[in-house]
Design a binder for these strands. Structure first.
Lengths: 204, 204
DNA sequence: AGCATAAACGGACTTTACCCCGGTTAGATT
DNA sequence: AATCTAACCGGGGTAAAGTCCGTTTATGCT
């Protein structure tokens, strides 16, 4: 019998060289995106630029979309921290409806800033990695509950609101990379729309 | 000077052979989807099965996603007719909120039935052809106006509701091809969610 | 009917995502 | 420290998307 359970639960630590290559690849990818745009990041090119073999890139990220998912994940950490333990209205402690509105504004900002990457992360296969897991739905659900939405409508409204939040950027936004002014206008319009929607849905 | 303006406005009718090949390709594509699934439809394969050259397929549909967009368009015609000139509550004549609810149910049904094709129509590049143009947004807008939504919130709510309607199926639905029972449950849940959302948004 | 022209056609070519497998190396075990 | 093993590395191979361009054909005009 093996008395030590920890190693079984965490099957194996990431090897040092693997971690180094992961960081190297993410940095290289970010640089390539900045220089030439997300659509010009190829697996071969990334491997060459980073000075590793093609197989390494695929081992790390499974698929092309996986690169962008990983990039987005890293980028999202900061925002998630502010949501979970930052000051109100985004962080815990305020009125649930205000938190919902603030969360939407933050999420829209994030999606717009990383629009190209977010779109690239939607490989045409599988669950849509950007929107699928993540904090958005559980968070919306908790806040709706706190705002007094009845349990019989909770799941339904959570899904609808999540889609209303992420849909416009992921589905409808056509401009590849909104310029300064354009992006600002989009942000205002979407944040305002979200606020109106949440207000209407949550009023008693 | 050229006195005849009509030919200038309608540059040229589609050539007979082109139209024939368009129909042939759409039929072949549909058959291939039924037999092997949308993800196994390749441009080369489609051209070969239809007995035309690859260049022809690309001329007709621009891109792989274009095939599925065209297929979806054709499929959607019937539903659009019922919306524009069928009996209430879907067609004109009833309460705007009821029409909105009925439209959502119809649209969800359509998207679920053509889920594989709809997802395949979302080429990871650019405007997202399924959700972009189409009847959904203008129709929602008109009905919201009819339901007494103030003009200052009209555009915003139109966008949010359109995303709430199409987002769940296009972004979140993970099951490749929902089976009989599974699909039925999804339909009920999504239609119910839409109804709750619209009711809450439109109540005065 | 014959002709001019613009559109459609076809297939070879290029690029790129993704697979595979032999060789190598980091870490655990004794 | 030596060894063992699983994970990592690399680059060549395949299939499919999308481009190009020379050839063929339908359609409008005289």
């Amino acid at each position: 019998m093996d008395g030590d359970l920890i190693p079984l639960e965490r099957p194996r630590a990431e090897r040092a060289d693997a971690a180094r290559n992961r960081r190297l690849l993410l940095e290289t990818a970010r640089r390539m995106i900045d220089e030439a745009g997300a659509e010009n990041v190829t697996m071969d090119g990334l491997a060459e630029q980073a000075g590793v073999g093609k197989g390494t890139v695929y081992r790390r990220f499974r698929t092309r979309a996986g690169i962008f998912v990983a990039l987005l994940d890293a980028e999202e950490r900061g925002f998630q921290q502010r949501v979970l333990s930052g000051p109100p209205p985004l962080g815990p402690g305020g009125d649930p409806v205000d938190r919902l509105i603030a969360y939407g504004q933050g999420r829209i900002t994030f999606l717009l800033e990383n629009h190209a990457v977010a779109r690239a992360a939607m490989g045409q296969n599988r669950p849509v990695p950007v929107a699928g897991p993540g904090l958005t739905r559980p968070h919306i659900r908790v806040l709706l509950e706190g705002a007094g939405v009845g349990a019989d409508h909770l799941d339904a409204l959570t899904l609808q609101l999540a889609a209303a939040l992420e849909g416009p950027v992921l589905l409808y936004l056509t401009v590849p990379d909104p310029g300064e002014a354009e992006g600002e206008r989009s942000l205002r319009a979407l944040a305002e729309g979200w606020k109106v929607l949440v207000t209407r849905v949550c009023r008693t």
